[in-house]
Each structure stands twice: as structure tokens, then as C-alpha cells.
Amino acid sequence: MRQTKPLPATVRRWAEQRIGPIVAVRDTSHDWYRSRVWELEGEGEARRYVKVSPSEKFFTRETRAYRGVVPVLGHSHAPHLLDSRAEDLALLLTAVPGAPAAGLGLTTGGWRTVHRQAGGLCARLHEAGDLDRTDRAQAEGSLEAAADGAEKYLTRAGNRLTRAERQVIRDYAAQLRRVGPVPVGYIHGDNQPRNWLWSPAGLALVDFERTRPAARVQDLVILAVTEWLDHPDREQAFLQAYGRELTGAERHALRCLTALDAVNCLAWGPDNDHPDVTARGRRTLDRLMRENRL
């Protein structure tokens, strides 16, 4: 059973200075030791959230996202940043309705509706404003940066991969460097149903600590190896609302990126006691190995 994480006293005092007395606190962190998020109940049952970022890098990304990118989603489709405190890496956020779609047991039609709305929201996010020179350079170099990370993950994965599997990962990393131009923009960075809140009011996106300028197709990797692999109707619904089909270059980049996601999962999952992540990586890599033999 996951241990409940206490809200740090300094963060609580800061939050109360901003929103008034807190009458109840509930730990709503993900099942990961570095995830720290709490629901705050104020007087009159008003709800807010406070998040303590895992690192300064994530704190900087998320505060920037809330200030400059997330507002394009609209008031009811993402939290609003009330305040931030760099000393504690803390963000104070409004609440949005809904619960994570991943745990709702939705029907087939319900999942298509969720993916359709997710496609529309991702399109808004990906097209949020013009990239400045620095952001554009980062975005246009994001696929090469992903390829550069392959060796790090291969080293961390160690003997969890065979020699043949390691060569396949290197081959896909090399191909990724040659994909060519693809559409770029601001991506969510952890785009999956656990970060999609679903309610009768519609869909909302949360958790923007990985939001950054990048190739837009990078936001589809987790969906491609989980949600869409066995449910192509969900992919069709998403892309219909997204407003376009992926280009040939994006399709090729996506395949390469799924290989890099696999080795990342096989490096990170066992080290952090996440069997679901490990299984995702193993399933993807096994599929790629089979397909490469055909």
C-alpha cells in the first residue's frame, strides 16, 4: 500500500496565506515516490491543489507552461496557476472537474469520446503561439536529442536487453536522426489517460511538468504503445479531432520513438519498482523485434 505523504508545514503556511484557512488535506500523488500533490479543502468546501515539483527543472517547466501555454486550453480544460514558490518548488493550482480517465472503466464509445476531446485539446496546446528563436531551436533539435539519449538508457538497462535488441535500439536511434523536418510546437510531455480528467463537463489536462518545445509527434508515443495499439478506433478519434493525419516523416519518427520509449521503460521501470512501465517497454520491444524479422 502506498504511504500517505504529509503536506510540508512551510508549504501549507504559504498556501493558507494565499487562499485562507485549510480545513482538510488529501494526498493525491501518483504512485511514484517523487510525486507530491495534495488536494486542499478550504472554508465553504472550496478546493485547490498544491504540487511540489520533483526537481527545479520540472518546476521551471511547469510554471512557465501555466503562464504562457496552458491558458490556450480554456478555463475548464486545465488548472489555473494561482501562485508559485520557488524556495519549495511549490505550485498552487485551481481545481478542475473530473477523475483520471484511466480508472473510470469507460465503454468503447466513451473511450472514443475521450480520445476525440484529447485530440482537440492537444491540437490547441501544440499550436499555442509562435515559438521564439530559442524554443524553435530546442523543438527542431528534439528528435536528435531523443536519439542522443539512447546510449544512456541502454547502459542503464544493462543485461535486460539481448545483443540483438540493443542493436535494434541503436538502429532506430540512427534512423531518428535522418527523419527530416516534422511539425514542432509545445507538447504536454506525459500525454496519457492518467493525466486526462473526465467529467460530464468534458476533458481536462493536468500535470504540465514535462511541457516543452519539441516535435509534436513526441506527445503521441505513450498513446501509440498503449491506448492505440489494441484500439485503432481511439487513434482515429484522436486524429480526427486533432485536425490532420500524421505526415510520413512523423509516422517514421513515431516508430523510432517507440523503440526509444521501450528501452527507457526497461531502464526506468525495474529501477523504480514500476512493473507496468517495465511491461510496456518489454511489449513494445518484443513487437518491434518480431516485425523486424518479417
Rank of each mutant, 00 (worst) to 15 (best):
T107I: 06
G109Q: 13
G110A: 09
G110H: 15
V114N: 05
H115T: 12
H115N: 08
R116D: 12
C122W: 00
A123D: 10
G129L: 08
D130N: 07
D130T: 13
R133T: 12
Q138W: 07
E140I: 12
E144T: 15
A145W: 03
A146I: 06
A146D: 00
D148P: 13
A150T: 04
K152H: 10
Y153V: 08
Y153Q: 01
L154I: 03
A157D: 03
A157I: 07
A157F: 05
G158F: 06
N159Y: 07
R160P: 05
L161P: 04
L161V: 03
T162V: 05
T162E: 04
T162Y: 02
R163M: 10
E165Y: 00
V168A: 06
R170E: 09
Y172M: 11
A173P: 08
A173H: 00
A174S: 08
L176K: 02
R178N: 11
V179E: 01
P181T: 06
P181Y: 07
P183K: 15
V184T: 15
G185H: 08
I187Q: 02
G189N: 06
N191F: 15
Q192H: 14
Q192R: 14
P193T: 06
R194G: 01
L197F: 00
P200K: 02
P200Y: 04
P200F: 01
A204N: 02
L205R: 00
L205Q: 03
L205G: 03
F208S: 01
F208Y: 03
R210C: 13
T211L: 09
A214Y: 04
A214I: 08
A215H: 07
V217W: 03
Q218L: 14
